[in-house]
Write a protein that binds this DNA or RNA. Structure first.
Lengths: 121, 121
DNA sequence: TATAGTAGTTACCCGTAGGTAAGTAGTTAC
DNA sequence: GTAACTACTTACCTACGGGTAACTACTATA
């Protein structure tokens, strides 16, 4: 196997690690929402209007297990819970920026003429 | 809705566009493989060792429909087909780089102690 | 004649991601 | 006492992403 093929194999392996963490419909949106500041369960639900409490709960747990976010319980009344990005979560900022950059570019090139997304329409 | 919430909604919308294109286990790996140069069906299969011909064929079609790659048929004997990135596909370079950057970082922080990925082991 | 290489297609199956709806539990306000 | 807010959990169901295996079709080579 030559140098180029080795490099390709290595990059493919790294890519898989990343994809395992961010895979699925909801994780990137949840992380993105939290880049705007710590948020409570209900706040995230109001940001991501079409996520169900089941999926939100499930994905928050997965992100916590992967050390991307932390869950903090406040003994206020009523009890509130805040989710925030860990340093590892915050380290995804550039990745999120590039997703947004490319998405904007893609929208101009291809999506441009389609209807506005129902989320915003 | 205030300025911040507007921004959050807008970014969430853009993110969805991107995710629709790159979602799934195989698209990013395929695009990554093609950043190393134009490749034939069999070559991609040899790079991504555990993809089935069915999935490869299916995902290549989807990427072509989204204008990320092009398919070129060569009338040689035997017939060969080359897949290459379009300018839009090439514009994903920075995004791929960030996936790799973050994946490397993540591997150091969390995955680090785990076994080496079977793909490379 | 048969084996290997080109590039797929087709049929079948299965697990899980994700959707829907209702329930839990505690507190506050009306 | 009942509605509404906090933050979920649980049960049930379905669609589809993805896996496996076999098959197509054409050419070259031994």
């Amino acid at each position: 196997m030559n140098q180029k093929e080795h490099m390709c194999q290595h990059k493919l392996m790294i890519t898989r690690d990343t994809l395992e963490v961010i895979q699925g419909k909801w994780r990137i949106p949840i992380i993105l929402a939290l880049t705007f500041g710590d948020k409570r369960f209900g706040e995230i639900q109001r940001d991501i209007v079409d996520i169900s409490p089941k999926m939100l709960s499930q994905e928050l747990k997965a992100l916590e297990e992967n050390k991307i976010i932390t869950r903090t319980l406040y003994d206020s009344m009523p009890v509130t819970v805040e989710y925030s990005l860990t340093p590892l979560g915050k380290s995804m900022k550039k990745l999120l920026d590039e997703i947004l950059n490319w998405g904007t570019h893609f929208r101009k090139e291809v999506v441009g003429k389609k209807d506005v997304h129902p989320l915003v329409g």
